[in-house]
Simulated assay, not measured.
Amino acid sequence: MNNYIRIRKYISDYPETTVNGIYHKCFLSLLADTGARISEIMYIEKANVNFNNCEILLTQTKTKEDRIVYFTETSKPILKKMIQVKNDSKYLLYNIDKNRVSNYDDIRYILKQVKRQLNIKKLHPHMFRHTVATYLIESQMDLPSLMILLGHKNMETTKRYLHVSKKHVKKGYSDNMNKL
């Protein structure tokens, strides 16, 4: 969770002075906020971003079923800036330099920069999904809600994402056992 907090700070401070900066910050913000798969993030349609409710309708999902994911108020400004970047694509994440929809090479490049600048040894897109799931569970989100958020068909798949920290387990134990 420590690296996740460092990465969120990095995202917050990421420069937005160029179109690439907006693109990179938006990509990272979506990874850090939504818990969505990278393949789902790459195909977010501009029309499916609801700023009033801080939610995104994902229409290209692994399960082939539409679902809603959420983003934080903090990410709202960068998503708005990304939508305002001029291009003819219906997709939110469009690589202006390469004149194409985003792809895995783009996120690998962005994460390589993050790793280097924050001196993190291991970082890949799916780690964000795991971290979001763990954070939500540690913050008392119930498993059925998390299962829906992550787009899983069964609870066993969701349970694989749970990497509850020892500190959280100990606190839960202490909080409850000390009531005896």
Rank of each mutant, 00 (worst) to 15 (best):
M1V: 15
R6Q: 12
Y10V: 13
Y10D: 05
I11C: 12
D13A: 11
Y14C: 12
Y14F: 15
T18L: 11
V19P: 00
I22M: 15
I22F: 04
Y23M: 09
Y23S: 09
Y23F: 15
H24Q: 14
L28Y: 08
A32E: 04
T34Q: 01
A36T: 10
A36W: 02
S39R: 08
E40H: 03
Y43N: 00
I44D: 00
I44G: 00
E45W: 02
N48K: 13
N48L: 02
V49T: 03
V49G: 04
N52E: 15
N52T: 14
C54V: 02
E55R: 14
I56S: 01
K64M: 12
K64L: 03
D66H: 10
V69Y: 01
Y70H: 06
T72A: 01
T72P: 02
K81N: 04
K81A: 05
I83Y: 02
Q84R: 03
S89A: 07
Y91K: 01
Y91W: 11
L92G: 00
R100C: 14
S102N: 04
N103M: 08
Y104D: 04
D106S: 10
D106F: 08
R108C: 05
R108P: 09
L111K: 07
L111C: 05
K112S: 14
Q113E: 14
Q113D: 12
R116K: 14
Q117N: 14
L123F: 06
P125A: 11
H126W: 03
M127S: 08
H130I: 09
H130K: 08
V132Q: 02
V132G: 00
A133K: 09
T134D: 02
L136T: 13
I137N: 12
E138I: 11
S139E: 15
D142G: 05
P144H: 06
I148V: 11
G151T: 06
H152C: 03
M155H: 06
T158N: 03
T158Q: 06
Y161N: 05
H163S: 06
S165A: 13
H168V: 10
V169I: 13
K170C: 08
G172K: 11
G172T: 15
Y173H: 05
S174T: 14
S174E: 15
D175W: 04
L180S: 04
